[in-house]
Amino acid sequence: MIPLVYVEESVRNHPRTESILARHPRASVVPIERYGSIFNHSQQNFRLQKQRPALILANKHDHFVQPAPDAYGVGGDHNWYFSHMLNCLYDCRYCFLQGMYRSAHYLVFINFEDFLEDIDNKIEPGKQNWFFSGYDADSLALEPVTGFVANALPFFASRADAWLELRTKSTQVRELLGHEPLGNVVTAFSFTPEATWKATEHKVPSIEKRIQAMQQLAEHGWPVALRFDPLIEQAGFNDAYSELFEQIFSQVPESAIHSATIGPLRMPKQFHRTMESLYPEEPLFVSGLAQRNSMVSYPAAREAEMIDWATDELEKHLPSSKIFPNLPA
């Protein structure tokens, strides 16, 4: 339950605000001038806020759609990302959001139409234009609160050159199941092996439940995808990932899978420092990581080894044309 909703005065009377507030009748509503007076304000603690986040409803004014980082991509011509929401329902210990923001509150920009308009402006006809939505938040976990996907589906239904990736660890696929499947809307599920899920992905649904959600979508004709990004080091790394791949591919047909990406665990050193100071007891931040230039990651040789091995292993289940190892420069 969301106990508190901060609402920017500029969106207080927006129908989407009214609708969200109506679904949280017991929450205290606090009017605010700008979301910056709460979100990322100094002298807050992400770790403590994460234990009971509030919801912030705000208006985004610019920079709706941004060029995606170099390593983001699944073979399209143009890659963009957008964040109609910042922060996540889940609490993955490796997540860079912990290092990036001082606030753990869920910030939702409710002017969805402005995002869609900017997406429209970025589409180059005749090209495959990808729009990634799960960069700063889980794309589906808070769908029952935000309703973003419900708004976006009709938009993408009429734009064949625009491809939407919904990246998620959730099982919130009801909105998609109630809609005619769209070939250009891909729901990409992130996974790590069982031991890593248990140790680091707090509040994330089990692997099996996520596979079931994938199955449901696939059965309804929706393209699904796999994201092994980041790969997390663990004892018995190879066996653990082999088992995970087996578990997935024994239940989800290869034909339903649009793509799989593999990426390393990397974060700016300042983010790593912040995350380690938030959770000093967390072994993940110490285990095998090293600083390279301004980034913290596994040592280069080990990182390449992990990605090469995982790529080879995935090729036992998927054609190489569907596998995208993302090793940033």
Binding site: L4, Q49, A54
Partner: peptide
């Protein structure tokens, strides 16, 4: 949940993270 200094107009937000 919100403290407003009437004179200075400064606004403060205690963060309510426990029931």
């Amino acid at each position: 949940h919100q403290i407003i200094d009437k004179h200075s107009k400064q606004v403060f937000y205690p963060q309510l993270v426990i029931k």
